[in-house]
Design a protein around this nucleic acid. Structure first.
Lengths: 365, 365
DNA sequence: TTGAAAGCGCTAACAT
DNA sequence: ATGTTAGCGCTTTCAA
């Protein structure tokens, strides 16, 4: 009979350990370990006894101890900007699902778009010895996060890019260009780009795409406004401009490219309030194709990101690095962006009817 | 000079340990530990040397090892139904924030409303030796989760209830009653309740509230329909009924209480499609007050849940159990539910105008 | 004020 | 087929 190391009765509060199981099954702890890890070299009868003991005690292996001795965790950190934003919520869910499928446990940290909490979150993940990190957001501009990572843990940016790191994202510049061209083809000339004050990396590329389309068309200048939803004004070249005035027909802005759907929808709300009609007075194109955008009452024309692809490839990319299937310089994977035309865009009020570009595939978010 | 235990140069891939720091600072590892844990009994000069070494190596304590030896983690598990649902997304974010404030690290698992993955998620949290678990959803009906928990780890239900466990939630029955009474006071008599096939605990209470209000008014019977958004039909008493037919004026149903906002909004979409107007033909009341519901284009009358309170009290409740400030039988905390009247409810088309009940406080989700 | 030593629960050689 | 043993990186007595 195997010796019971701990002479006392099992504490009511403490979780049973591998030793408790070994004692009950009257085997050594290695045998229990062999059963848990499905090592074949265990006789049927012994295995049965061990399994019986495990169930009787309600034993569950301590992952912390296992990962400590294995010198490798299965924790995958996910840095999210704002879980309450439906785009990130959906991405978080998909990432978790794919991570689980690949044998990893997702650990989220919400940064609230704040560089300090982003760094705190990354540090926490590092202290948990996360096997890899997925960035859905990146607020830090100072390089502190890059330094903290110090090439010690594989990371991937999903939905945005960073030159020092693997990434999976759509061609944001192309998306911005396409969105703007859609407005131009409808006949719009006075087109502005509206973005949020808390600008993400990907926003810059989308804005650049807008700029290129405007330059190429040669019509009208490009104007980028930073708008905090709720405010009546937006910042343009360091000056505040009144939005209501900006859009006032007949000579106001008739087309808007918003760098994300939430901003686009907030703008719709604003326009509704000041009695400007979408799309009769103002056409709007968003970016992301959140579920919301597909509601008939919103019906927002937008650039769709293939969320499922982004999640799948993001996990695959970081898993390949973790498992050593991939080495070398940062990889930049591209996913396809697509225009989804809905009811928020139409020719400007003074424009003759003409055929309208259609999306490659209409999707319902 | 202290002996360097590990003679080799530090590996490029492995994270530095407390021993590496000790060797570099020429102290023992206990001293390093004392510095990390801010134990006062360390001389200023020693502390400085250690801190210097920590920074030079980019050392970060291994939380796994620490929690193993301390026999207690700071991991707080959060079981979520669907992160892509804005109500849960927002709750997840708030819970994470409050958990962090209380010194815990949130670890989410998304169950997709599926009992099997819920149990898998709980098992995972148990294997990580989570200090406590917050349930935002509960799909399992078999008691398997309760048995797995086996009173070994403190848990709290937030937004729903379970008699074997602490909970923080609004009075769902009162909410359902209030929502129905609002419709009744507007003059509606033919009022149905619409819920999802994947019914949560809290849905049952909301439906019960609807039933009580209907019974009390003595007008019309109560009818509960299970509807899968996208379908043209809903299940009622085991039979399928056509929604379009159900609402057709003048003798169709004129008022709907939906057990959550997402279902309510999906119903709005459906009604829009079949050319029934909200609220002229059909009035709708939802439940949750998600951000979406406050958009002018949706303008859904709904029962608001105090999300911030739920999150704060949920964390406080489980933290109290963990930290031993609380013992004894399950606690059931109540949060206030509130009617938010918006544009989706109005008197029925054949009803004379009359004063309308107003919300305690109009909120913008 | 510092250091030595005994584990926490587990895995993975290596012995038997 | 099963047991023995040496750690994984850390905290925490207890001695010095």
């Amino acid at each position: 009979m195997a010796t019971r190391i701990n002479g006392e009765a099992p504490s009511t509060r403490r979780a049973p350990t591998i030793m408790d199981v070994a004692a009950l099954a009257e085997v050594s702890k290695s045998t229990v370990s062999n059963v848990i890890r499905a090592v074949p070299a265990v006789s049927g009868s012994t295995r049965a006894r061990v399994i019986e003991a495990i169930e009787q005690l309600g034993y569950r292996p301590n992952v912390l101890a296992r990962q400590l001795v294995r010198q490798r965790t299965t924790i995958l950190g996910v840095v999210v900007g704002d879980l309450a934003n439906p785009f990130y919520g959906e991405m978080a869910k998909l990432l978790e699902r794919h991570a689980a499928r690949a044998g990893y446990t997702a650990m989220f940290c919400n940064t609230e778009g704040d560089a300090a909490s982003e760094l705190a979150g990354v540090n926490m993940l590092l202290e948990y010895r996360a096997a890899g990190i997925v960035f859905l957001a990146h607020a830090d501009q100072s390089g502190a996060v890059e330094r903290a990572l110090a090439r010690r843990v594989p990371a991937v940016f999903v939905g945005s890019r960073q030159d020092w790191c693997d990434s999976v994202a759509v061609d944001d510049e192309r998306g911005g260009r396409w969105a703007t061209e859609h407005l131009q083809e409808l006949g719009h000339r006075r087109i502005v780009c509206i973005t949020t004050p808390a600008e993400e990396d990907s926003d810059a590329a989308r804005i650049a795409g807008y700029g290129k389309a405007m330059a190429k068309a040669g019509s009208g200048q490009s104007h980028v406004l930073r708008w905090l939803p709720g405010s009546e004004e937006a910042e343009h070249d360091g000056r505040l401009v009144s939005l209501a005035h900006l859009f006032r027909p007949p000579n106001g802005v008739s087309g808007v490219f918003a760098t994300n759907d939430l901003t686009a929808i907030d703008l719709m709300e604003f326009l509704d309030r000041v009695n400007l009609r979408v799309p009769a007075d103002v056409s709007i194109v968003g970016f992301d194709n959140v579920a919301l955008a597909g509601l008939a009452r919103i019906s927002l024309t937008t650039m769709a990101q293939p969320r499922e692809d982004l999640a799948r490839q993001g996990i695959a990319t970081v898993a390949a690095r973790i498992e050593g299937h991939a080495a070398g310089p940062p990889r930049r994977l591209m996913a396809e962006v697509d225009l989804v035309v809905r009811g928020s865009t139409a020719p400007p009020y003074d424009w003759p009817n003409q055929p309208v570009e259609r999306s490659t595939a209409e999707r319902s978010a």
